[in-house]
């Protein structure tokens, strides 16, 4: 039984990793190596691709910084709105809460890419385009349905006696949230935060339409811009280096927070 599992495991690993490893390989190749893949040539390996990416104007680090800043603001903003909303959903009449949860679930299914034009108009009317921090407003609204559903299911799992005991101990709502409820849903909150961060890190269409200033681009937009030119003239070596650098933070997040991500995704599935 155990032995015949190794082949499927190897296939799974190859399937998941091959495209990534090919990017990694490409990023260390000289242009000659890329165009003469099967021949023996003198200069096959290089760090030039990375040097080029890090030295470009604006430097690639800039996009990383933009994306991290946007990810953190979006995550915080989402939690600040979602935590009270989730608490409210647990406390209102069950049939109302159920209706709202169904609506939120429907919204979470909605392919948000269709919203870009109206959101662009909002950005234009309020003059908040080309502003990384303002971009976190639509981002957190887009993340909120799922965030609220996840946090609600975590709050519902807290035995009601705990909050009642806190009430009898004299804790008011703010104190109960701060000392009892929020610490108790910390695991769900961190899962939610990581999912929101990854969403923000990967989001493309809204960022594409809201940001035009080259200094303000997020990572996905900057990388897609490299591809903006024709199929044949894409500088693949430099591009691969960019994807490796852009993928690293997410790689780290997945490896460190594997448990939280999985529980976040599956909790959403089971209880949503």
């Amino acid at each position: 039984m155990k032995k015949n599992l190794s082949l499927p495991i190897i296939i799974l690993l190859f399937w998941s990793l091959f495209p990534l490893l090919w990017q990694l390989y490409t990023s260390f190749c000289t242009p000659e190596a890329l165009t003469h893949p099967l021949e023996i040539i003198e200069h096959r390996w290089t760090l030039e691709n990375y040097r080029q990416i890090l030295k470009s104007d604006p430097p690639f680090i800039r996009y990383l910084f933009n994306s991290i800043l946007l990810g953190i603001t979006t995550t915080l903003l989402t939690l600040v709105f979602s935590l009270p909303a989730a608490y409210g959903l647990v406390k209102i009449k069950p049939y109302k809460a159920k209706l709202i949860r169904i609506i939120l679930f429907g919204i979470a299914l909605f392919p948000y890419v269709l919203l870009f034009l109206a959101l662009l108009e909002i950005a234009r009317d309020l003059n908040i385009g080309n502003n990384i921090l303002m971009l976190s407003i639509p981002y957190s609204a887009l993340s909120m349905p799922l965030a609220i559903l996840l946090l609600t299911s975590a709050l519902k799992d807290i035995p009601s006696e705990l909050e009642e005991a806190a009430k009898l101990e004299g804790l008011n709502l703010a104190q109960r949230l701060k000392w009892i409820l929020i610490p108790l849903i910390a695991p769900a909150t961190s899962s939610t935060a990581i999912l929101v961060f990854i969403f923000s890190w990967n989001e493309y269409p809204i960022a594409l339409t809201w940001l035009s200033n080259p200094d303000l681009l997020t990572l996905p937009v900057a990388i897609a811009r490299i591809a903006g030119s024709s199929v044949y003239s894409v500088p693949y070596g430099a591009y691969a280096a960019a994807t490796v650098l852009g993928a690293l933070p997410v790689l780290l997040i997945v490896i460190i927070f594997q448990k939280q991500i999985i529980s976040g995704l599956t909790q959403g599935a089971i209880k949503g």
Binding site: E164, A165, L168, E169, G170, P183
Partner: peptide, 20 residues
């Protein structure tokens, strides 16, 4: 009078100790 102002000592069936 809200529960927090009633000055009542209660022992719950599940004990309701704050687990964290």
């Amino acid at each position: 009078v809200s529960p927090s102002k009633r000055n009542i000592g209660m022992v719950f069936q599940s004990y309701a100790l704050f687990p964290h």
